Amino acid sequence: MKKKLYYLIAGVAMLFSACDKDKGYVENTEYERLTPGDPKYSYIKILNLSPGSPVVNFYMDGTKFSSKLSSTGVENAGYTYNQVFPDLGYAIATPGARTLTGKIIPTATADANLQVFSTNINPAPGKYYTIIPNGAYNTSTKTIPSTLVLEDVRPLLDTTKVIVRFANVLSGGPTMSLIRGTAVSDPKIINNVAVNTASDWVEISSPGGGPNPSLSFLFVDAATNVALGTALTTTSLTKGRAYTLYVRGISGAASPNNPIITFYTTFY
């Protein structure tokens, strides 16, 4: 029987269903009670960071894994550059060696149903992962060329601090460092993150006043200390949460594939 289970983590499991508000369940053909990190499953998030990527859906061992609502009853929606599945939390998969693929949606005007992405993963029981297809979409071979798999180890959260890590997914870019601030003279909080890797978690112990302090970040070439893009300034980072900041795009490219830093909430 096909299983498609979704899991939202916010200290406890939450129901991913509009018809039952009881906490601690996921929806299948029947309801199943889970606890966070239940070793019966692995927990997967997919973030498409391939510039120029067509709209794709993802499949686990040939069975559709990702899901977006369709207004027509025909699969006409999926995930393109800088889109994430699921929107919140993690999808649930069986642990062990698996093949994750991506196919262009069947209603596409070009290359419908073509497989453009494939990678082998081996998620461990009870662990959380973000899988990032990346690298500029190759229009000659019609493939997404690379993959970054991050194990999402939950850090110790503190309601007085903001926790961040930095992922370097800039196609053709250099090893980078992350600055807290808007100028290259401001403090580096994460150093020497190579392309297609991510740092460990780092605490920002004095993020500012209020529950949602304003924080700015700048990414620089680790070797030259030259800024590679404009600073990210946000008022939406919340104390007591952990965020993945990532630099995406193509080195030296213009919009919409210009280098830019973005973030998503990883744990709260």
Rank of each mutant, 00 (worst) to 15 (best):
R154C: 11
G73E: 05
L170V: 09
D111M: 00
G73D: 06
A77Y: 11
L114P: 04
M176T: 09
K142S: 10
T101I: 12
V84C: 13
G89N: 09
N138S: 14
L170N: 10
P86S: 14
P86H: 11
N168A: 00
I163A: 09
T141M: 11
K103E: 02
L148K: 02
G73S: 06
E75C: 03
S171H: 12
N168L: 01
F85P: 03
L148H: 08
F117I: 04
P155N: 00
L114T: 11
V153F: 06
Q115V: 08
V149T: 07
M176E: 05
P174Y: 04
S140A: 15
T119P: 07
A112R: 04
I132C: 03
Y137E: 07
T107H: 08
E75M: 13
I131P: 01
I179M: 12
N168T: 07
T101N: 09
F117P: 00
I163Y: 06
G78P: 04
S146C: 11
S177Y: 12
S171R: 01
L170G: 10
G172L: 02
G102P: 06
Y128W: 05
L148Q: 01
I121M: 01
T94P: 04
R165W: 07
S118H: 06
Y90M: 05
Q83Y: 13
S118Y: 01
P125G: 15
A108F: 11
V153N: 10
A112C: 06
T80P: 05
I144L: 00
T143M: 15
N76Q: 08
V84H: 10
S118L: 09
Y79W: 10
S140G: 13
R180G: 13
I104E: 00
G135F: 02
N168K: 07
A167D: 05
S171M: 12
A97Y: 12
I132V: 05
P145S: 11
P174G: 01
V84Y: 09
N122E: 12
A77H: 01
V84D: 10
Y79H: 08
E75P: 07
S146D: 10
F85S: 11
V162N: 04
P155Q: 01
L156S: 15
E75G: 06
V169T: 08
L114A: 05
L156F: 10
I105W: 04
L178T: 13
G172K: 12
F85K: 01
K161N: 11
G126D: 08
A93E: 03
P155H: 05
A112I: 07
T109K: 15
S146N: 15
T147W: 06
S118M: 14
T80F: 09
F85V: 14
S71Q: 14
L150D: 00
K103H: 00
V169K: 05
K127T: 10
N82W: 13
V116A: 08
L157Q: 08
A167P: 04
Y137G: 03
V84S: 14
D158C: 06
G89S: 02
K161P: 09
Y129T: 02
A108T: 09
K142C: 01
T175R: 09
I131K: 02
P86C: 14
